[in-house]
Design a protein around this nucleic acid. Structure first.
Lengths: 211, 211
DNA sequence: GACCTTCTCACCTACGTGTTAAGC
DNA sequence: TCGCTTAACACGTAGGTGAGAAGG
């Protein structure tokens, strides 16, 4: 919340380009209590899934779309007395993986017509094991996913091209290996279809913070 | 078996290129009794899955890999008295779908390193309904899947490039809406993991009442 | 009637969830 | 002890099987 990421593009070579976050309301609910994302060795999907709408592209021009996840700050965090607080210096970030959307390159028409989704990406805390959909992060650190758009049909020279970058403050999260805040757990269970088995069992697993 | 498809490339602009069928033994077992593949409106996967190994590519050159399925002859077939026999003239084939492998284009190194699989492709008997992984065929016709390799990184001009084509006689099949030959059904049940529920080992008796 | 197609079903595979207990 | 991580688990979603009945 205190960070300067905005919806507006940075280093944007194309002023008409526009990217909108899907499921804003849901993201905001999580953000309000402090979003947590689980990281595992094998890799865990993000929930909510990272999905966006795009507009302002030239329908017939080709674009590549990428995602990465960067540190928001240099701290390590801990959850104590119901709050996240700084717990020392963060670990050095390994060179960040740039995740190319598998539909790249595609014409602007295609990107604008569909929802652009990265829901298959998995967050991992282990460098070992090769998975194409894996992004390695450090647990107990704060991160920000970003979208990058490059107008080109050449995947090989992406890094040489001008790039439009978008980030949404609602999508900042802290990585954990187990949920720290019971409110986050509740939101996940109530909204993720795969967690339906934990819904409403007579208020059984009420792991709210001890008072 | 009376057809002239061979493992050798036709129209091959690159003599070093080599493609080998995976699961040859399994394909041969089916071929020996007369392979049948189910077609449905929604689309049905092939079993065995169509998978190949590639070699002889230049590691750093880019290639596109495609698959299509063509008529073996001009006949319509029927299964009578335990045998497949010609049952009149075949229907005209609609212009065949060329299925581009989703990893295209990729460098030769990548294609040679992995098994190249088309197991997600679905065979359908209905033109209606849009599915990206669907190939439309006529039931009760005899077909041959083929692999095509083009050395290019430009997906848009594939049809203008010289192409290497491979076909394996073991993979010829007849399309059906329900299995005709009981030996085929047996092979499918015993080898396809998704049909494990119909295997009669393990004490659970199915329709055959032997007590 | 004979033949082919379609639909629903039980039974699988495959894998995405948070929970829990154990590990460090 | 405490904080964090891991692995096994029950319970979901999602979808690939042939059987069998019904339809054309």
């Amino acid at each position: 919340r205190q960070h300067s990421f905005t919806n507006a593009p940075t280093l944007n070579p194309d002023a008409n380009l526009k990217v909108e976050l899907c499921d804003r309301k849901l993201w905001q609910e999580f953000s309000n209590v402090g979003t947590e994302m689980i990281v595992t060795k094998a890799g865990r999907r993000m929930f909510p899934g990272y999905r966006v709408n795009m507009s302002g592209m030239e329908p017939d021009a080709n674009y590549c779309v990428m995602m990465d996840i960067v540190n928001v700050d240099e701290h390590r965090y801990k959850f104590q007395q119901g709050e996240w607080m700084v717990a020392g210096k963060g670990e050095l970030h390994s060179p960040q993986r740039m995740f190319l959307h598998p539909d790249s390159p595609s014409p602007g028409r295609k990107w604008m017509n569909d929802i652009v989704s990265f829901y298959k990406i998995k967050l991992s805390n282990s460098v070992n094991g090769r998975s194409t959909d894996k992004i390695v992060l450090n647990s107990m650190h704060r991160y920000q996913p970003r979208i990058h758009i490059v107008r080109t049909d050449d995947v090989n020279t992406l890094h040489l091209q001008p790039m439009s970058t978008f980030a949404f403050p609602q999508t900042v999260f802290i990585t954990v290996t187990a949920y720290q805040n019971g409110q986050v757990t509740k939101l996940k269970i109530n909204n993720n279809p795969f967690a339906k088995g934990f819904r409403d069992n007579g208020g059984r697993s009420n792991k709210t913070n001890r008072s």
